[in-house]
Design a protein around this nucleic acid. Structure first.
Lengths: 113, 113
DNA sequence: TATTGAAATAACCATATGGCTATATTGGAA
DNA sequence: TTCCAATATAGCCATATGGTTATTTCAATA
């Protein structure tokens, strides 16, 4: 029915809109390399912890990431199936490695365990 | 350099954000079937002509569509290369055909030439 | 239990977005 | 040229968004 199709387009639009932010896109690129927790992301992006939390919540709400608590940390992982489902190829993400190296030089790449 | 990577992520985010709207996503699904002009889209979506124009302008600005004037009409086509470049598969778009049929029954599928 | 540290939530603010109406602009036909 | 139809642009408004600081929640530890 028409309503059903509308729902599908509108759901897909929500997922794509969640991807349509440079910070969240870089978070996705990072998670494509390894799982991360919020406290690792804060120094990398230089924005506040609540901002990062909101971004993660947004990604989680459209099933692009999953979370797993380990002690006091919450680790986020990509839900690669959802990327498949929406037809988006993670392989076409801009290369994050040079930016990654730069962050490492500045000592901003902290690991939490 | 870091700046260059930032630009790339930010550009990709702009394209995904342009896709992240249900109306524009359905326009893309329509254009995936055949080229359309603005006056065909207005009755289909039931929003004003300037709204449709703004959506098309948004899609054009991120190179997702191209326009070609034919007489007083402006026809829009998908730029399939751009979809490839951003890693988005048009084949995963929700099926528009049942919605398409519904519109046809209601006499909303006008062609302009 | 009390404290500490990580993450989430609340409340706020400036800007972006998607709709609208009114007004250009553009091209074809009288 | 004059008029009309199709688009685009301008300007307005309500809501969404992405940041902030302050506060709460939750788990580990002293």
């Amino acid at each position: 029915m028409t309503m059903t199709m509308t729902m599908e387009f509108s759901k897909l639009a929500d997922v794509l809109k969640a991807l349509g932010d440079p910070t969240r896109l870089k978070i996705v690129a990072l998670l494509n390399m390894r799982d991360c927790c919020v406290c690792e992301l804060v120094p990398i992006f230089g924005i506040s912890q609540p901002s990062i939390s909101k971004h993660m919540s947004r990604l989680k709400n459209v099933d692009l990431v999953t979370e797993k608590r380990r002690g006091q940390w919450v680790f986020y992982s990509l839900n690669r199936q959802q990327f498949e489902d929406i037809g988006y190829s993670l392989q076409r993400l801009p290369d994050f490695s040079s930016e990654f190296d730069e962050l490492e030089k500045q000592g901003l790449l902290v690991t939490c365990e």
